[in-house]
């Protein structure tokens, strides 16, 4: 197997991992601080993608599209938190799963009413549509930008959580909510803020991935499950765990799909390899998650004791 192919797949894995991190960060913070499962996180990702698509189409500016997606989705997130999530914090996980599942059904239909059922094909900015040379490797420029933005956002978020006062509250809240309240943190406002940030991050991922995947109803669901796999592996509530698990899942999934069929062809008869290769590749991250939970029932970096 040529090294350039391996390098390309590694970059693809990194890109998937970073995008997963943008989604997982919001999810894991909401879970860590509010002890709440939010299935509707995938819907925020979808809404971000749709807003970006509409604004880019209307204005022709990709940057404007992303900015609008961030602002619009954060607003939707705040509205969702104040209208619904707030009522669910002290309820059982089962109630949270069902209520936010209901939000998925509602959000999908509202999007369908506004934008229709046809997938929207979003063009990438013309300046970035070609490949670039990178250490002798030709790689799509747009994907490289996605990696760059993903990295920058991840670093920004890390600094925000690790270095700022708001971040300190977040960490305090994640490990011990009562302690945070004793410290005088206005948890109500903190929750809304965290939710808005999570929504904005999801929108960034949705907008960036728009040109690579089709923008369509239901796009949030598969990616939501992946993000859940990530935060479960990482240890729910842990940003560090989410980052590492994102990269792990991104790399394992991409490498599995790229190399497993190849590997299986070397090991098994062609008939079996053709069947088993793709099958195992698509199950790989779930196997990974089950294995992690088998040995560490609370994930790699549990945030609470």
């Amino acid at each position: 197997m040529p090294p350039s192919l391996i390098a390309e797949q590694l970059l693809n894995g990194l890109q998937l991992g970073l995008m997963l991190f943008l989604l997982a960060a919001g999810l894991t913070l909401v879970f860590g601080i509010m002890d709440t499962i939010n299935l509707a996180h995938g819907s925020l990702y979808m809404i971000g993608a749709y807003i970006a698509a509409s604004v880019i189409e209307a204005s022709g500016s990709f940057l404007l599209g992303i900015a609008a997606a961030i602002a619009g989705t954060a607003l939707v997130g705040v509205a969702l938190e104040m209208a619904l999530l707030r009522r669910l914090y002290r309820r059982s996980h089962l109630s949270q799963v069902l209520a936010t599942f209901a939000v998925i059904l509602i959000a999908n239909e509202i999007v369908r009413m506004i934008w229709g059922s046809q997938p929207i094909l979003l063009n990438m900015p013309p300046a970035l549509s070609g490949p670039v040379e990178l250490l002798g490797l030709r790689y799509p420029a747009y994907r490289l930008v996605v990696i760059g933005v993903g990295l920058a956002t991840a670093v920004l978020l890390y600094l925000l959580v690790a270095r700022t006062r708001a971040g300190m509250w977040v960490r305090a809240g994640a490990s011990d909510r009562e302690m945070a309240e004793v410290m005088g943190v206005d948890t109500r406002r903190l929750f809304t803020l965290v939710f808005a940030i999570g929504a904005a991050l999801a929108a960034v991922a949705g907008a960036l991935l728009g040109p690579l995947l089709a923008v369509q109803v239901g796009m949030g669901e598969n990616v939501l499950i992946l993000a859940f796999v990530v935060i479960t592996i990482g240890g729910i509530g842990s940003i560090r765990g989410a980052l590492l698990a994102s990269l792990l899942v991104g790399l394992v999934d991409t490498a599995g799909r790229a190399f497993l069929p190849y590997l299986f062809r070397q090991m098994f008869p062609a008939v079996i390899a053709a069947e088993a290769g793709p099958a195992v590749a698509s199950m790989l991250i779930y196997v990974l998650m089950a294995a992690v939970l088998y040995f560490r029932p609370t994930g790699l970096f549990p945030a609470r004791g």
């Binding site: 499962i37 996980h93 799963v97 859940f228 796999v229 479960t232 729910i236 998650m289 939970l293 029932p297």
Partner: peptide, 8 residues
Amino acid sequence: YFIMITLA
């Protein structure tokens, strides 16, 4: 974690 692993 049980919810998530059964989902997986």
